Amino acid sequence: MPMSAEEIEAMICAAIPDAQVEISDLAGDGDHYAARVVAESFRGMPRVRQHQRVYEALGGRMGGVLHALQLTTATPVQG
């Protein structure tokens, strides 16, 4: 059974409480998503580690329940 965008967002927010998460269903099939995750806790972290944190938040569902996730991570813009 595919994951919903709401499930993905909830899992990321539970693991990265300061995250602002935007999820888009790329194919309309509940299997191919894009996620933009912005978190202050990413500051100073290499992009690879930011992505690892998001994948860890999904608890091993990548490649199984969640087929594809186009991931963009960032830190908030300081003004």
Results as ranks from 00 to 15, higher is better:
residue 24 S to V: 13
residue 22 E to I: 04
residue 19 A to Y: 00
residue 42 F to A: 00
residue 74 A to Y: 00
residue 48 V to E: 14
residue 12 I to H: 03
residue 6 E to M: 03
residue 78 Q to M: 13
residue 61 R to P: 05
residue 60 G to L: 07
residue 66 L to F: 03
residue 39 A to S: 13
residue 21 V to Q: 03
residue 70 Q to S: 15
residue 76 P to Q: 10
residue 44 G to W: 04
residue 76 P to C: 05
residue 29 D to A: 10
residue 31 D to A: 14
residue 45 M to R: 11
residue 59 G to S: 09
residue 13 C to L: 13
residue 20 Q to F: 03
residue 14 A to R: 10
residue 68 A to V: 01
residue 61 R to A: 10
residue 29 D to G: 08
residue 45 M to S: 08
residue 3 M to W: 08
residue 13 C to M: 15
residue 72 T to E: 15
residue 59 G to A: 10
residue 72 T to N: 11
residue 23 I to C: 04
residue 41 S to T: 10
residue 23 I to R: 01
residue 12 I to R: 02
residue 41 S to W: 02
residue 58 L to K: 05
residue 43 R to L: 09
residue 35 A to K: 02
residue 39 A to R: 06
residue 73 T to I: 03
residue 79 G to F: 12
residue 60 G to M: 08
residue 24 S to H: 11
residue 25 D to H: 07
residue 59 G to M: 06
residue 41 S to L: 07
residue 72 T to M: 12
residue 22 E to L: 06
residue 45 M to F: 01
residue 32 H to S: 12
residue 17 P to H: 10
residue 52 Q to E: 14
residue 47 R to G: 10
residue 2 P to V: 02
residue 54 V to E: 05
residue 55 Y to T: 11
residue 12 I to M: 02
residue 77 V to R: 13
residue 12 I to G: 00
residue 12 I to Q: 06
residue 3 M to N: 01
residue 3 M to Y: 02
residue 65 V to Q: 14
residue 10 A to G: 12
residue 54 V to D: 05
residue 72 T to Q: 14
residue 28 G to T: 11
residue 29 D to L: 08
residue 17 P to E: 14
residue 69 L to V: 01
residue 13 C to N: 12
